[in-house]
Design a binder for these strands. Structure first.
Lengths: 323, 323
DNA sequence: GGTTGTCATGAAACGCGTTTCATCCGTTAT
DNA sequence: ATAACGGATGAAACGCGTTTCATGACAACC
């Protein structure tokens, strides 16, 4: 294997000059630059990436922490992150945690040990403070709407999105409106809860705990949700479902249960996953790939920044029946 | 940052001995081993991973090449690979290619440049010969059933699986049997085609090109397939669908089109994706996570090996209607 | 003419763990 | 008693690119 030293000898310059050519630095005369380039070609030189890493102290590895890989929501974020990473010559290290504390911690420890340059939390179970404490070791990026001057964030204003969606359902005549989430305590869920409660108050509706469904993530959970619904004497007439997966499960189960959508039950999903268009599901599209790109961008950035991403309401046929 | 040299001084031993302790090598006396371990604790020493990489010449990075990330099939393989990688202290570099030649090539080039230690092809568009040529630079692992003594393989015998499934449908009385695949030219598709043709011959059935559906990968494609079906005067009474995604799309579209499943159309899916149980889809489960683990294992192994993985027939309600 | 500044260039320091090789010592085998 | 061998240990070589700092040359400015 030829190295930069051989190259220098071959081109009749110093290793510094070679390095400068390699990294496109200024202050190299055209003659020498060309000589180096020729030597590179002649020797089929390959830069030793490990030596670069040792020298620069960077690993070019970005940790990506998420609970589940097998869900379109996270998958799309990862897709965006991966694309952006490739463009920047970075690699990603996946931490599929299932919200286990220790697994999240292992990502933080790797950041502390400089085994990764930065870490992106797509979702977390650790406290914000814990993550902030590690921000001194390297960039910590969050996909959630929290106030912090230590971590970078890209987020969706779930509070506003939820409020708007609830308002839309209200305007369609719905008065018994429910919603589903996965966790009760995540930042997003908390924001939604707050928005929901505020909405009820401002519209003079009473709170019914039976209208709030938790643990909903996959299509099977939508199936279970429909079964729960059947036990209610006054079931909700509309539900905001925080994943199209779940909504899809609901639509399929509802058919079997003889529940007509949207007549008996209106649904609004989230994410605009592929299944949504197939089932004509009205949904709120989130720009997850862009979110991923943004997250990676922030992971590489110098400054702490905060970015809000917009969502899009996609009207199909699970709220209003008319074509 | 303390380094191995400081550590050696602190413990009163040579760097070699420290290295031996760090790597659990034999031939270190208990006394020295303990002294080193104490020094490690006292100084909060962290091994510089980049120095290790430079020294060993390994990157601990494994390339994973696949066409699409957003499909349960590949996602599950990646999941298995990622899990196994974590256990072995390796990291994965994803190459989402969309079957573009150049993108696949970039993975091979990285292998050549020693930027990754090995590369796993979950699916490929390049010729086998091309991949084999790169096997001299590092392990090349394939998820397909091909004869090669240069690349390692983990595979499913799609030919046998297909033959069995076709036989099952035949025994159920079906004589107009079709199948769907994504690509026409992939190893798996070719194996299936062969199995299909052989099956027709041995069962004295005639070949009808209208019964072979290509370009089927996502649920939407299942929707399109049903539309195609409606144009046929003698549509197949049973279809082998090589992804539950597609089968799911078909089931949903079939309902809207008034096609009864399984009475009018029997379906067997593949992969046992989550949606399959929800829709009571009879399917052939592939152990994709285990496949992923095996692939990674082979990527790290010294020897070229070939492993067949078994599939499982999961009977639900899209072939036989009874009970 | 002297000062200041820009461009060009290379020597040397820096980052750090792994592994080979030589050596020394004590023990077992002959 | 002596050769042979295994265990223990450290010096030194190896892997290699980046970056700081010093220096020289030349142009521009006062």
């Amino acid at each position: 294997m030829v190295n930069i030293k051989d190259l220098a000898k071959q081109a009749g310059v110093s290793v510094t000059t070679v390095s400068r050519v390699l990294n496109n630095h200024p202050y190299v005369s055209d003659a020498k630059r060309q000589a180096v380039n020729e030597a590179i070609k002649a020797t089929n030189y390959r830069r030793n990436i490990n030596a670069v890493h040792l020298s620069t102290g960077q690993t070019h590895l970005i940790g990506v922490v998420l609970p589940f890989l097998d869900h379109p929501y996270f998958m799309n974020v990862v897709k965006g992150i991966t694309q952006a990473a490739k463009a920047k010559g970075k690699h990603i290290v996946l931490f599929e945690t299932g919200y286990q504390h220790e697994k999240e911690k292992s990502a933080l420890t790797m950041l502390e040990n400089k085994q990764i340059d930065a870490v992106i939390f797509c979702s977390r179970s650790h406290q914000l403070k814990t993550l902030e404490a590690y921000a001194s070791y390297g960039p910590v990026v969050l996909f959630e709407d929290v106030k912090t001057n230590k971590c970078r964030t890209t987020f969706i204003n779930h509070s506003r999105v939820f409020t708007e969606a609830l308002g839309y359902l209200y305007d369609q005549g719905h008065r018994r409106i429910g919603y589903s989430v996965y966790r009760q305590t995540g930042t997003n869920s908390l924001a939604r809860k707050k928005a929901y409660q505020s909405f009820l108050v401002s519209h003079h509706l009473s709170y019914n705990p039976d209208y709030v469904f938790t643990g909903c993530l996959y299509a099977e959970d939508g199936n279970a949700l429909i079964n729960q619904l059947k036990c209610l004497t006054a079931p909700p007439t509309a539900i905001l479902v925080t994943s199209d997966q779940v909504a899809a499960g609901m639509i399929i189960s509802a058919r079997n249960a003889g529940i007509k959508i949207p007549q008996d039950l209106a649904l609004i999903g989230f994410n605009d996953e592929p299944i949504a268009s197939l089932l004509d599901l009205t949904t709120i599209k989130l720009p997850l790939e862009q979110v991923g790109q943004s997250l990676l961008d922030q992971a590489l950035g110098k400054q702490v920044s905060h970015r809000e991403m917009a969502s899009t309401f996609i009207q199909r046929k699970t709220v209003e029946a008319n074509e």
